[in-house]
């Protein structure tokens, strides 16, 4: 059943306009990051680490969460149109599979986005900046680690987008969450706020690893926030019913 749900969600993404955002947002972040890096070479230590911070700082601070919210709101939008909610409430599929299917597809999107961010980072680093050698494997690890933090945001926003029928409102909430996340991360409280997990995982504002020696608490925080959102999604979906109008 879960496989059917995933297939249905994947079908929604075919030729969807959301891919334009997927392509453009990391591209703009990469172009700006590279320009900024080249403009500030007298302040920055040249190298892959500082190029990474310039590429990902604003992307992970403020724009990753709204982008993820856009993905999740898009996956719920069809269900909120017309009488489709009643339709999905009556399909012979365990209700949580509907949520889980969306989660896995949104996570796949986020994983692809992160790979696109990393590919642009390597491409611009080699061809535009002309950095010697290849980026350290540690940076690829940070990009993948960011998706673990992203999982919590996806799980949370699937619940928010399920509850709020409006397509746009969850995206504004994500921006607010991201701004608060920047504050939490600055205060070293990143593990206590789901929107700050991704930026901590990405290590986007320091050249040295922010989570050095704290990987365990980070993974635990990602797991706890994701499971809390799963529980909320499970509870809400099982208590929700058809809407009679």
């Amino acid at each position: 059943m879960l496989r059917c749900c995933i297939a249905a969600e994947n079908r929604k993404l075919r030729r969807a306009l959301i891919w334009a955002v997927f392509l453009l947002l990391p591209l703009l972040a990469g172009v700006y990051g590279t320009v900024n890096y080249l403009q500030n070479l007298e302040i920055l230590t040249p190298g892959w680490y500082n190029l990474w911070t310039q590429h990902t700082l604003f992307y992970s601070l403020f724009f990753f969460a709204p982008m993820t919210a856009l993905y999740t709101a898009y996956l719920w939008r069809l269900e909120h149109l017309g009488h489709n909610w009643n339709l999905i409430m009556t399909v012979p599929v365990p209700r949580f599979d509907l949520y889980l299917g969306k989660f896995l597809v949104a996570w796949k999107m986020v994983l692809l986005t992160q790979l696109w961010v990393f590919a642009l980072f390597v491409l611009f680093g080699k061809l535009w900046v002309g950095l010697p050698g290849w980026p350290p494997a540690e940076i690829l690890f940070w990009a993948v680690r960011g998706t673990l933090g992203g999982a919590a945001v996806i799980a949370l926003h699937l619940v928010i987008s399920m509850l709020i029928r409006s397509f746009a409102a969850p995206i504004l909430l994500a921006l607010a969450g991201g701004v608060l996340g920047a504050y939490f991360a600055n205060e070293n409280l990143g593990l206590f706020w789901p929107y700050a997990l991704m930026m901590s995982g990405m290590n986007s504002n320091r050249a040295e690893d922010l989570l050095d020696g704290r990987m365990g608490p980070f993974l635990l925080a990602c797991l706890v926030w994701t499971l809390l959102a799963f529980a909320a999604g499970w509870l809400l979906l099982n208590r929700r019913d058809v809407r009679s109008e």
């Binding site: 969807a16 306009l17 959301i18 334009a20 955002v21 453009l24 947002l25 703009l28 972040a29 700006y32 320009v35 900024n36 604003f58 992307y59 403020f62 724009f63 709204p66 982008m67 856009l70 709101a73 898009y74 939008r77 397509f167 746009a168 995206i171 921006l175």
Partner: peptide
Amino acid sequence: FFENQVPALGCGVLFSMTGLFAMFM
């Protein structure tokens, strides 16, 4: 123009991002 709200919201996110970048350009 688009019944699908992705272009409007997508533009919003992209404008926010480029607007912030433009501050430092």
